[in-house]
């Protein structure tokens, strides 16, 4: 095993990057992602299955749910935060910067939730703004930190997904 930074083996990381550069099949594979969500059969509880992982999505009790897990909009900001952290670790490791602590606090603001409930037509029920505040403890100067962060934000899959308009294709089938 070679040099390890931030728990990542530098040699494996660069061979992964090489592979991504050359191997079209791998790139195709990691360009498609899947999930399945099932209603648990009662109230606002859903189970999600992603590869070998499964987890629960619910609603807080004040919104009539049993609060068995975070809700969908909370998962969205969690996904954004995790995506930024993933990119941050990748970009810091690439530069040989050791991170001691990394944490991100997210706050999303919905435009008009009443549209979801069908009691308003003004605005839209999605997030209009998400603030993502990262806190880093690392032995590096402010300039390097800024570079890592800016690259991370610019190349974030979830960040780009949210900041652009994604085409969503909803399909329905009734099973008899």
């Amino acid at each position: 095993m070679g040099k390890v930074i931030n728990g990542l083996d530098i040699e494996s990381l660069s061979s992964l990057l090489d592979e991504a550069r050359k191997n079209k099949e791998l790139v195709q594979k990691i360009s498609k992602w899947y999930a399945r969500v099932r209603w648990a059969g009662t109230g606002f509880t859903f189970n999600s299955y992603v590869r070998n992982h499964s987890f629960t999505i619910s609603e807080p009790s004040e919104l009539g749910g049993p609060d068995k897990g975070p809700n969908a909009v909370e998962y969205v900001i969690s996904a954004l935060g995790a995506c930024y952290l993933t990119g941050f670790i990748l970009n810091a490791t690439k530069r040989g910067v050791n991170i001691k602590n990394l944490e991100i606090a997210l706050e999303g603001e919905i435009d008009n939730i009443l549209v979801f409930l069908g009691i308003s037509n003004e605005g839209h029920p999605g997030y209009r703004k998400v603030i993502a505040k990262a806190y880093v403890e690392a032995d590096c100067d402010e300039k390097t930190l800024k570079e890592i962060w800016e690259e991370t934000v610019r190349t974030s899959p979830v960040g780009n997904t949210l900041a652009r308009n994604v085409e969503i294709v909803p399909q329905l089938s009734l099973i008899k």
Binding site: E107, Y135, E137
Partner: peptide, 11 residues
């Protein structure tokens, strides 16, 4: 609390 103080949990 962390939000009020604008600090990370590690600090």
């Amino acid at each position: 609390l962390l939000r009020k103080l604008d600090v990370p949990a590690f600090a």
